[in-house]
């Protein structure tokens, strides 16, 4: 009975958390979209979330593209399919690895930073202070962060796609002996517009998840420094899991025949 009660209690608390996140997401979207808008905050967040994430996302994409080219070449030689390296690198990066790797890296950087910042604001009463100064914290803090993440993630993933394919190209042409022109021709011939757009759609959804998790856990943090630390960890863990789950759901949806 105790075992069943534990399972039941876990399920109830999980459902309650899902409910709280859903209400928070609804409020964030509705209140974030209605005026007044805080453009200064939005620009600031676009720089923090997008521009400042470029180095980490670019390096991740570059090395992922290079490693992917090596793996496909090594695996492909078993079936005399080495020529597929360029096309599989391009497909793998644009459809899956570009958005997922960028999403996970930005979760580690941005969701953690948002949760820590809002969590500190919560425990030092800065969020309460906003309310007493006639400023809705949802509009001032949550709305701009979510909007900035939804706008910048597709741009980041677009850049990650280019850098990832470039990584595969450099490894393919320098280490694996592919011809420059043939590699580029195989890539451009094989990749379709929808391969790129599907990745960008995923990126926008991932951006929403990253900012939502950062804001939700930060906004609801309590208990001083330990609470802020817990909020940061929860934001990164829940953001990463939700990105992987959303990636599977979106792949099923976007590529179903």
């Amino acid at each position: 009975m105790t075992f069943l009660a534990t399972i039941g209690s876990f399920i109830f608390s999980m459902l309650a958390e899902v409910g709280r996140v859903s209400i928070f997401a609804r409020d964030a979207v509705i209140r974030g979209l209605l005026p007044p808008w805080y453009f200064r905050q939005l620009i600031d967040q676009i720089i923090r979330i997008g521009y400042n994430s470029l180095p980490v996302v670019g390096l991740t994409a570059f090395f992922t593209g290079g490693a992917l080219a090596l793996q496909i070449y090594i695996g492909g030689t078993r079936y005399n399919a080495e020529n597929l390296v360029s096309s599989i690198v391009a497909l793998g990066i644009t459809r899956e690895l570009g958005p997922v790797m960028a999403g996970l890296m930005v979760t580690g950087r941005v969701a953690a930073a948002i949760a820590a910042e809002l969590g500190t604001m919560r425990v030092t009463e800065q969020i309460d202070a906003l309310t007493t100064l006639s400023t809705n914290p949802f509009k001032y803090l949550v709305g701009p962060r979510i909007l900035a993440a939804v706008i910048t993630m597709p741009v980041l993933v677009g850049i990650a796609d280019i850098i990832g394919i470039l990584g595969g190209f450099i490894v393919g042409t320098t280490s694996l002996g592919f011809n420059y022109a043939a590699y580029i021709k195989n890539t451009t011939d094989f990749v379709e517009f929808t391969d790129v757009t599907s990745g960008l759609i995923k990126a926008a959804v991932f951006g929403f998840i990253i900012a939502l998790m950062g804001c939700y856990h930060g906004f609801n943090s309590k208990g001083g420094a330990q609470g802020v630390g817990r909020a940061t960890t929860n934001a990164v863990v829940s953001g990463s899991i939700l990105i992987l789950a959303a990636n599977y759901a979106l792949t099923s949806l976007l590529f179903s025949e």
Binding site: M121, E125, A129
Partner: peptide, 10 residues
């Protein structure tokens, strides 16, 4: 409102 820790925006 004056908060206990001042609650200034960092």
């Amino acid at each position: 409102m004056l908060f206990q820790g001042a609650a200034l925006f960092d």
